Simulated scan of single mutants.
Amino acid sequence: MQIPSGKIKHKMEKDNHTYLEVTEPAELMKFLMVKLPTKSRKDIKSLLAHRQISVDTEIITQFNHPLAEGQQVVVNWEKVLIEEQPQGLTIVFEDPYIMIIEKQAGLLSIATATEKEQTAYSILSDHVKKRDSKNKVFVLHRLDRETSGVMMFAKSEKVQQLLQKAWKEAVLERTYVVVVEGMVTKEEGTITSWLTESKAFIMYSSRTPNDGQKAITHYRVLKKNKHYSLLEVKLETGRKNQIRVHMKDIGHSVIGDKKYGATKHPIGRIGLHARVLAFKHPITGEVVRYETDIPKEFLNLFK
């Protein structure tokens, strides 16, 4: 819903700060898009990520933070970091302990024994070292090369260990959107199987209990037509290629995923995107939730 600009007014501007008064309930991102018309959504996300937005003196980093009538939003322009985004990924949230990025499709998460090319990890590592040669990043989880979307890195070994030890409890939600071949008739469902990997690095699914690693995937249909279906998928377990194998299991391979049975390749990439990551912050204890947009090339298939 678009917020009428007349409903939200500047309170004052001084000392490189902009003070905004909220006169009706709104989401923080929508509020700032209206009041900072020269700034793009990406610019505003950067302000949030670099802790330059506060609401009633509390620093806020979540774009969907709810605002109430009578609150004051302050934009601190003094700390604006003019920093190029690294090639192949976008930093969408950062604090002293963690970094959240949005990875492009086609980029490896980390190097493998056979592939040492540029990865999300190496690009981000080089990026933080430009600020200070002592800076490091630490891997917490991976996305398949062909999958785009949200990934999290730790900024110290201590934080990495804290998160990895409590990963199942700390990560509250991992939601993907996926475009599959054909019309999925069942509006929602759960797929459970046991996965094993062949010597050719292909994952196989078994319905026999304990015949591999247990994998559980929940899905619901968001959109569909006679050619494709757009699904929201939530992982209960995070096995290698889990979504891709499970979509093949139900007879609807992920588009572009020739490895797991796809015959259609309409967008030049695999139709899989990590959309939401929500977790309990390892240091502050607050719940952090980052949600990205559904890729336009996915939505264009349903126009």
Rank of each mutant, 00 (worst) to 15 (best):
S206W: 05
R239C: 09
K264Q: 06
D56M: 07
V180A: 01
K264G: 00
A68V: 10
K103R: 14
I255Q: 00
D211C: 14
A166H: 13
K223M: 12
S5F: 06
L230M: 09
V75Y: 15
Y260F: 00
S156Y: 10
E197I: 15
I283V: 14
M152R: 08
R145W: 00
P25F: 13
Q52L: 11
D43G: 10
H246T: 09
K280G: 03
K248E: 00
E188W: 12
G182Q: 01
E197M: 14
K158R: 11
V179I: 09
K258Y: 02
Q164I: 14
K226I: 11
G189Q: 01
D43A: 11
F279S: 02
D211P: 04
T208S: 05
Y19G: 03
K165H: 13
L81P: 01
D293E: 14
S40K: 10
G251P: 02
M151E: 14
K165I: 04
W194R: 03
V288K: 03
S125Q: 15
I202L: 06
K264M: 05
Q71M: 11
L172H: 10
K30G: 15
K45E: 07
P66L: 04
K296I: 00
D144C: 07
D293Y: 00
E69D: 11
G271K: 02
A200S: 10
Q213Y: 10
L124Y: 08
G285F: 10
E78M: 13
H17E: 12
L36D: 00
M99K: 12
Q72H: 06
K130E: 15
T237R: 11
T292M: 01
K259L: 02
D56K: 05
W167L: 05
K165S: 11
K11R: 11
L28I: 15
K280H: 01
P295K: 03
K130V: 15
L28M: 15
Y121N: 06
K79E: 12
L108V: 09
G182D: 00
L108R: 12
K224Y: 12
A68N: 14
N76S: 06
T38W: 14
K240V: 01
D95E: 08
E232C: 05
V55P: 02
S156Q: 13
D249W: 01
I91E: 04
R269L: 03
M99H: 04
P295M: 02
K14T: 12
K35E: 11
N135C: 10
P86F: 07
K129L: 14
V22N: 03
R220T: 07
A105K: 07
F63T: 07
H10I: 14
Q62Y: 08
I294T: 02
M29G: 03
